[in-house]
C-alpha cells in the first residue's frame, strides 16, 4: 500500500470522487458496524426489540389515520393508505436531512483519531434511515393488505425509488453536514424549514385542494416530486411518466455531485474547524 500526498498536486473532481468511493469501499465494514449499532441503539432494551421497527410506524399510522379521517371526514381505510403513501417518504427525507446536519460534528472523535473517509458518516445516517424506511414500507404493505387496498404491480419498482431517494438524501446530508460545521445553528433552521415545508407537500391533502393559482408552489418544491413518485408507484395510477422518474433522479444526482464538490473543497480544512 502506497500513499502519496503532495501539496503541489492539483486535485481534480474526478480523482477526488473515485478516491472517495475507493475509501468508502475499503471502510465498508466500519459502515456496516455503524449502521448496525445505530439500529441497535434505537431499539435497544425495548421488550419487543426489532419488532418495534415494524410496530412503531404501524401504530403511529393507525393513530394518524383515525385522527385525520375524523378531521377530513373521509373514509378511514382508503384515506389512511393515501396519507401514508405521502407521509412515509416524507418522514424518510425529513429525518435524514434534519438528523443529518450534525453528522460531521458527531464524527469529530473518529475524524481526529484515525483516517476514515468523511463521506462515511452521512452515508451511515442515510443508510440507517433507509433501513427504517424499508420497515415502514413493510408496515404500509401490511396495512394496505389489511384494509383491502389493491396495490399495483408497479410496487415492484420501489427499490428504484428507494435508490433515487437515497442518493437525494445523501446529497442533502453531505452538503448540510459540512455547512453545519461552520454554522452550528443551521440544524435548528433546517428543522423549522421542514416543518413549514410539510404543508407544501401533498401529504394530508391532494394537490387539487388548493386553488389553481397556488398550485405552482408545489412544483418549486423539490420534495414534491419524490412524494408523487412514491405514491404513483404504490397505486399504479395515474400512470407513471418519464418525467416522474427523471426529475427526482436528476435532482438526486445534481445534489450528490454538488455535495461531493463541496466536500472536495473543504475536505482538508474541515478537521481544523471541528
Amino acid at each position: 500500500m502506497v500513499t502519496v500526498f503532495d501539496s503541489a498536486d492539483r486535485e481534480t473532481y474526478f480523482r477526488f470522487v473515485s478516491k472517495t468511493f475507493r475509501d468508502v469501499a475499503l471502510f465498508r465494514y466500519a459502515l456496516q458496524n455503524f449502521v448496525i449499532n445505530n439500529l441497535r441503539t434505537r431499539y435497544r432494551k425495548s421488550f419487543l426489540g426489532f419488532l418495534w421497527s415494524l410496530l412503531s410506524p404501524l401504530l403511529s399510522m393507525v393513530v394518524l389515520a383515525v385522527v385525520f379521517s375524523f378531521a377530513f371526514k373521509q373514509d378511514i381505510k382508503t384515506f389512511a393508505v393515501y396519507v401514508f403513501t405521502g407521509l412515509i417518504p416524507w418522514l424518510y427525507i425529513n429525518s435524514s436531512i434534519s438528523g443529518g446536519c450534525q453528522t460531521m460534528i458527531y464524527a469529530e472523535g473518529f475524524l481526529k483519531k484515525v483516517y476514515i473517509p468523511k463521506l462515511l458518516f452521512p452515508l451511515t445516517l442515510v443508510t440507517t434511515e433507509t433501513v427504517n424506511f424499508v420497515f415502514s414500507i413493510i408496515s404500509l404493505y401490511i396495512l394496505a393488505v389489511a384494509v383491502g387496498t389493491t396495490l399495483s404491480w408497479t410496487f415492484a419498482l420501489l427499490p428504484l425509488v428507494i435508490l433515487i431517494t437515497f442518493i437525494f438524501n445523501l446529497g442533502w446530508v453531505l452538503i448540510l453536514s459540512i455547512i453545519t460545521v461552520y454554522f452550528r445553528d443551521l440544524t435548528h433552521i433546517v428543522t423549522v424549514v421542514f416543518q413549514a415545508l410539510f404543508y407544501l407537500v401533498p401529504i394530508v391533502y391532494p394537490v387539487e385542494i388548493l386553488p389553481e393559482k397556488f398550485q405552482w408552489l408545489f412544483y418549486y418544491n423539490p420534495f414534491y416530486y419524490f412524494i408523487v413518485l412514491f405514491r404513483k408507484v404504490i397505486y399504479g395510477t395515474p400512470a407513471l411518466t418519464w418525467g416522474d422518474w427523471l426529475i427526482p433522479a436528476g435532482l438526486a444526482l445534481v445534489l450528490f455531485l454538488v455535495g461531493m464538490y463541496i466536500l472536495m473543497r473543504r475536505d482538508r480544512e474541515l478537521i481544523f474547524r471541528l
Partner: peptide
C-alpha cells in the same frame, strides 16, 4: 502521517499500511 491532517505544503510518501494505536474510547 496517518492522513488526518494534510500539510499545506510539502510531500509525504508512505509505503505500507499505517495503523495508529487508537486512544482509549475511540472506536
Amino acid at each position: 502521517i496517518v492522513g488526518i491532517y494534510a500539510p499545506q505544503s510539502g510531500r509525504i510518501e508512505v509505503h505500507g499500511r499505517v495503523t495508529p494505536m487508537i486512544e482509549i474510547g475511540t472506536g
